[in-house]
Design a protein around this nucleic acid. Sequence first.
DNA 1: TGAGATGAAATTGCATACAATTAAGGCGGG
DNA 2: CCCGCCTTAATTGTATGCAATTTCATCTCA
Lengths: 219, 219
Amino acid sequence: MSTDTNPTLADKLATAIADGILNGRLPPGERLDEVGLAEQHGVSRTPVREALRQLAMSGLIDMRPRKGAIVSKATPEEIESLFVAMAEMEATCARLAAMSMTPVERRRLQARHEAMMALAAAGDTEAYSDANVAFHSAIYAGAHNAPLAEYAMNLRRRVGPYRRAQFRVDGRLLRSNQEHDAVVRAIVSGDAAGAHAAMIHHVSLVEDAFEAFAAINAA
Amino acid sequence: MSTDTNPTLADKLATAIADGILNGRLPPGERLDEVGLAEQHGVSRTPVREALRQLAMSGLIDMRPRKGAIVSKATPEEIESLFVAMAEMEATCARLAAMSMTPVERRRLQARHEAMMALAAAGDTEAYSDANVAFHSAIYAGAHNAPLAEYAMNLRRRVGPYRRAQFRVDGRLLRSNQEHDAVVRAIVSGDAAGAHAAMIHHVSLVEDAFEAFAAINAA
DNA sequence: TGAGATGAAATTGCATACAATTAAGGCGGG
DNA sequence: CCCGCCTTAATTGTATGCAATTTCATCTCA
C-alpha cells in the first residue's frame, strides 16, 4: 500500500553530495575523495563510487579515469553556456505551459506569483529565493513534459553554485517580480510566443545580475 | 603527448550496453542481469553496476532498488513526451544555430544537405539514415552550446528504440529531405524563428511517421 | 480450482581485499 | 638553486565474499 521508498545507500549519498554542492559546502573545484566521503558517511567506497558516477552523468561533478572526481568547475564560457541553455529550456517550458496548462494550474501559478509580490516588497530574500524555485518548478510542471522538466531542473541545479547570491544585487527582488509578472500574464492568457520571450528576457537578466555580482567579487 | 584515452571498464560497458539498446539487440523491457552482463563481458559485477547507474541517469534504462534494471520501456504517453521534447530541443538548437553558426559551418551544413539529396533520390535508406544523424548532429554543434547539444543528442538516443524503421515508411526519404531544405535555408540565411519553426515541423512529421509505423505494427 | 503461505534459489546491495595507476617527496646531478 | 629520476605513499579500479531482499516454484487448505 505504502509507496516503496527504499533508496539505496548510493542514492542517499548522491543526494547528500548534491546537496553539499548546491548549498555551497562543496565549492566548484573541490576534490571528492572516495575514502573521505565513505568515512564521512560511514559506508564503504562501493556505494560512494556509484553515487559519484550518477552525479557525473548529471553534470554536477567531473570524473577523469584514475584521476578522481571534483565538483564541476566551469570556465566563464561554460557558465555562459549553462545560462543560455537554462534560458532556452525555461523559455521552452514556459511556451509549452502557455499552451497546455490546465485552468487550475494557471490560477495556482497566478496565486503563487501574487504571493511573491509581498515577499519582494518586504525584501525577504530568503523566502523569495525559495518561492522563486517553486515558481519556476511550477512552470516546468505546467509544460506537461517530463523530460524537458527534468532537463530544466537539472540545469537550474548546475548553475546554482554560480548564482548563489544573485538576489542580493540591489533591487533584484522587485525587478525579478516584475519580470515574473510578464511571464505569468503570457502563460495565463495562453500567449505561447509571449511566454517564451518573457522568460528568455527574465533569465537573461538573471544572468546579467550574476555577471555583475561576479565582477564585484573579482574586484 | 598522445591524448589520455584510458576509459575504465565501467565506461566501456556503458557504451557497449548503450549500443546494444540502440541497435535493438536489447529491446525495451529487456532485463539487465548483473551477473549475466558480467559473464558476457568477462568482468565482475562491480563495473557492471557502475555502468548501469550511469545509463540509468541518461534515461536509457530504469533501475528500481533491489528489483534490478531493465531497458527503459516507455508508455505511449511517455514516448509522445520524448518526441515532443526532442522536437523542442532540436528546434532550439536550430534557432541558436541560425544565430551563431560561422560562415564555414553554414556552408558545410548546406553541402551536407545537398549530398543527402542524392541518397534520398537513390533510395539508399541505410546511408541516408546515417547521414541524417550526422546532419542533425551538425545542427546541435552549430548551436555552440554544449549542454543543449548534449541533451538533444541524449533525447535522440532515447527515442531511437522507438523509431528504428521510420524511413521505411513509403516516401519518407524524399519528404525528409524536403523538410531539411526548409531548415537549412532558414539556418543559412540567419532566420532564427524560421529555423525553429521548420525544425519543429520536421521532427513532428517524423513523429507522425513513427505513429503510422506503430499503427501498422500493432495491426 | 485457486488464493495464500512457505521454502529455496536467484539476485541485488554493500563491504572488504587486492591490483594498478597516479601523486608526492626525497635524492643526486647539473 | 633548479631539474629530473626514483622510491614510496596515496588513490582509484576491479574482483570476490557475504548479508539481505526478492522471486519463483511448491505446497497447503479452503
